[in-house]
């Protein structure tokens, strides 16, 4: 099993039409500052490299960085966590109160499967996820989304407008297509898929190849 880095994973998925965060891979604090200047603060800094597929577990993510001082401090912290060869991902900060999770994997019994469900910190406890065997129709993907117990989160929520269902379905189709087109891919995880201005955007992603 080979994991693509977060950066490569998102680039691949972006090629299939999935919206992903704007981001640059940098290897030094100076480059990081340059990118952040271009994006405008706040930004996100993450450790990015081979073998760093569980960034949150090693605390390799710094959110909501407000200025260059905070950015330099963040990079310094991340450097200590890395193996010395890691790069840093500087990305735009995405705000949205709704987090979903989407994925693809080859099931041992049923073959390629698409998944969509509630994300965020309670995702594994609630396990509110649905599956569809692939390939499948756009209607089935829609049903899969609307069959969630937490389907109310797709409606207007806490002052945010309803999720664009068309965009959501297209995002899921992009993930499915990416998996189906690349037989070497055994799983794709997009977590979180945050709703920002009604549209889903992949904030983190991990592609694993056999």
């Amino acid at each position: 099993m080979v994991s693509l880095s977060e950066f490569e994973s998102k680039k691949l998925l972006h090629g299939y039409g999935l919206r992903t965060t704007k981001e640059f891979l940098v290897s030094s604090p100076n480059e990081a500052l340059e990118v952040a200047k271009k994006f405008g603060y706040p930004v996100v800094a993450k450790l990015c490299g081979e073998g760093i597929s569980h960034k949150t577990e090693i605390n390799g993510v710094r959110l909501n960085i407000q200025n260059s001082d905070e950015l330099l401090a963040a990079i310094q912290e991340l450097e200590l966590l890395g193996d010395g060869n890691s790069d840093y991902l500087i990305a735009e900060q995405i705000n949205g109160s709704r987090e979903f999770i989407a994925g693809y994997h080859i099931d041992k019994d049923f073959g390629p499967v698409l998944m969509f469900g509630l994300g965020g910190i309670f995702a594994e406890v609630l396990a509110d996820v649905n599956f569809r065997l692939l390939p499948t129709s756009r209607d089935e993907i829609l049903t899969m989304a609307k069959d969630l117990s937490g389907r109310a989160l797709l409606e207007a929520f806490r002052g945010e407008e309803a999720v664009s269902i068309q965009n959501l379905v297209e995002s899921l189709e992009a993930i499915a297509q990416c998996g189906l087109d690349n037989p070497s891919i055994i799983s794709i995880d997009v977590n979180p898929l945050i709703i920002s201005n009604t549209k889903p955007i992949a904030v983190d992603a991990l592609v694993i190849q056999s």
């Binding site: 999770i101 899969m144 799983s187 794709i188 694993i208």
Partner: peptide
């Protein structure tokens, strides 16, 4: 992966 851990056999079977 998260997909894997959420994908209990029965969840996929039910949706299938």
């Amino acid at each position: 992966s998260h997909t894997g851990s959420l994908a209990s056999d029965h969840a996929i079977f039910t949706d299938m």
